[in-house]
């Protein structure tokens, strides 16, 4: 009940005890801040720090570890952006699927000397300078745009599950889009006939199938002798 006491203190009871409670309340407020909207900053900082760690670390397995944390933190950012479905897809496909594949690759190839292949220090410095310049360009261009001009217009409510991205819970609308229907057209007389994302969705699914068959063909075990490394 600290906070009630703190509230009473703010209501105007002078004295050391009240001051102390007010101070305590503000301290705990500061501690509690990351728990709600501040999660964005926590996960943002985590994503950024882990991405930098990917660049800095030399061991491939460590890189994979940091990459997992970075991508998982980005998935959490998707949740904070009310894009639940994208966030869960990120966790399931990216972190749980693609990265497991990547780690398989690491384990099949990272034998002894290839675990750490260092770049030359000069290259690192050059890449760092170029990267900072690129970051500067991107950030300056992002800041120079007045984003308020492009703020979303209030969406009309079609029903539960057909929310705008700002409201969250967009799963049904996403599904309708992938099926080629526009939820806003449902029930209205002037329904437009647009393919939506049905065609890209089909193309991507066929593409994925072709890629998987191709990858299996490329990576199949060829029973051939590996070239003998000259011992001298």
């Amino acid at each position: 009940m600290i906070w009630t006491l703190g509230a009473a203190a703010e209501a105007g009871e002078p004295g050391l005890w009240a001051k102390f409670l007010g101070l305590l309340a503000s301290v705990v407020d500061a501690v509690a801040w990351p728990f709600h909207e501040g999660t964005v900053y926590v996960f943002g900082a985590m994503a950024v720090a882990c991405a930098i760690a990917v660049v800095v670390s030399q061991n491939v397995v460590r890189m994979a570890f940091w990459l997992i944390l970075s991508l998982a933190a980005t998935g959490a950012l998707f949740f904070s952006l009310n894009a639940d479905f994208v966030g869960a897809a990120q966790l399931l496909i990216y972190v749980g699927g693609t990265l497991v594949l990547l780690i398989f690759g690491v384990m099949l190839t990272a034998s002894g000397p290839f675990l750490q292949i260092k770049a030359k220090p000069g290259e690192m410095v050059l890449a760092g300078v170029v990267g900072m310049a690129l970051l500067g360009v991107i950030l300056s261009s992002a800041i120079s745009v007045d984003w308020d001009k492009h703020a979303p217009s209030p969406e009309k409510a079609v029903g539960i599950g057909f929310n705008s991205p700002a409201e969250g819970n967009t799963t049904r609308e996403l599904g309708m889009k992938f099926l080629g229907a526009n939820p806003k057209d449902i029930g209205s007389q002037k329904a437009t006939l647009s393919p939506g994302y049905l065609l890209p969705f089909e193309i991507v699914s066929v593409h994925l199938l072709v890629v998987l068959i191709g990858a299996a063909y490329l990576a199949r075990a060829k029973r051939q002798k590996a070239p003998v490394v000259d011992p001298t």
Binding site: V61, D84, A88, L91, L92, G96, V100, I103, N169, T171
Partner: peptide, 26 residues
């Protein structure tokens, strides 16, 4: 009560394998 609760739980449970791979490797 997520709108995508089931999808989320499947996604989260698929992350468990990461720790196992790293444990085995390290």
């Amino acid at each position: 009560d997520l709108d995508i609760g089931l999808f989320f739980i499947l996604a989260i449970m698929s992350l468990e394998v990461m720790g196992v791979i790293f444990a085995g490797y390290s």
